[in-house]
């Protein structure tokens, strides 16, 4: 129900590839030549400490941030220069960090706006489907989305991103600020989407959990990919987790990188909902 039959037909082909993407925020370079490849139907985890550049990768993919070098290919087309709305129409969607639900719109309206690019008939049908699928949304269908709790808001954000039946779903910190039980629900949902054959890229600070739900993973540090491989393989690398808990780079087996790195100078984002940091 969540995924169109068309997309769920697994193809082995490559859906998305990034070739040496470089991204800067003003004078600050956030990504240094990131290359990665995502196969159709694959779930990819991006892990790494805060500020490593994980979100910047997603922003480059969805077009919120133009890379100053490199190339992005999607379904065989070069989409490097396309604006965000056109990428959405090509079948991508992003569940943004901090959820960014529209607090003054009702739950249903959030969904309908999420389906802006659909034909009118289909839009309401899809919204109804989503509301059927998510118990919480059904109960609060016509309430303002601002009253939702963190977990509910996250479900709404995901449902909203699923409205146009995307083939590639990007999720930026989907468990941010959620209680463990609620976070587990979100990962349950990720698992469900994965089983239905959707292609997913999930950014999470919590490496264990996200590796358990992914096929392959990339470890990003200071704007570089420092490790990649199958998720199972990375999950066994105890040493990698050390770097999250502040082991020095020596203990983590990760070489320190030269040059300035991430930090979003003058990109003061003011999320309207959700929690911060």
């Amino acid at each position: 129900m969540l995924v169109d039959a068309e997309t769920s037909a697994k193809t082995d082909g490559e859906l998305l590839s990034l070739e040496s993407i470089e991204v800067s925020y003003g004078p600050v370079r956030a990504l240094f030549g990131i290359s990665l490849s995502v196969g159709s139907g694959e779930t990819v985890a991006l892990i790494g400490p805060n500020g490593a550049g994980k979100s910047s990768v997603l922003h480059a993919i969805i077009g919120l941030r133009r890379p100053n070098r490199g190339r992005i290919r999607y379904k065989g087309h070069d989409i490097t220069g396309l604006p965000t709305q056109q990428r959405i129409r090509l079948g991508m969607a992003l569940v943004p960090e901090h959820r960014r639900i529209l607090a003054t719109l009702t739950v249903e309206e959030n969904l309908l706006v999420g389906g802006m690019i659909l034909p009118r008939r289909l839009r309401q049908t899809r919204a109804n489907e989503m509301i059927e699928r998510f118990e919480v949304l059904k109960r609060k269908r016509s309430q303002q989305a601002g009253v939702l709790s963190g977990g509910e808001a996250q479900q709404l954000a995901i449902a909203r991103a699923l409205m146009p039946s995307p083939e590639l779903l990007l999720m930026d910190e989907p468990t941010l600020g959620l209680a463990p039980l609620v976070a587990a629900q979100v990962f349950g949902l990720i698992k469900e989407l994965r089983e239905r054959g959707m292609t997913l890229i999930v950014v999470d600070q919590n490496p264990r959990r996200v590796l358990n739900s992914a096929d392959s993973a990339y470890l990003i540090r200071t704007g570089h990919i420092v490790q990649s491989g199958s998720a199972d393989q990375l999950a066994t690398r105890e040493d990698l987790f050390g770097s999250f808990l502040g082991g020095s780079p020596e203990d983590s087996g990760v070489e320190p990188m030269a040059g300035p790195a991430v930090g979003s100078r003058k990109t003061v984002e003011t999320p309207k909902s959700g929690s911060d940091d």
Binding site: I88, L102, E109, G114
Partner: peptide
Amino acid sequence: RAAAEDFDTAQLLG
């Protein structure tokens, strides 16, 4: 209304 509340997110929704 979506754009009035959060222009960036509105763009993200297409």
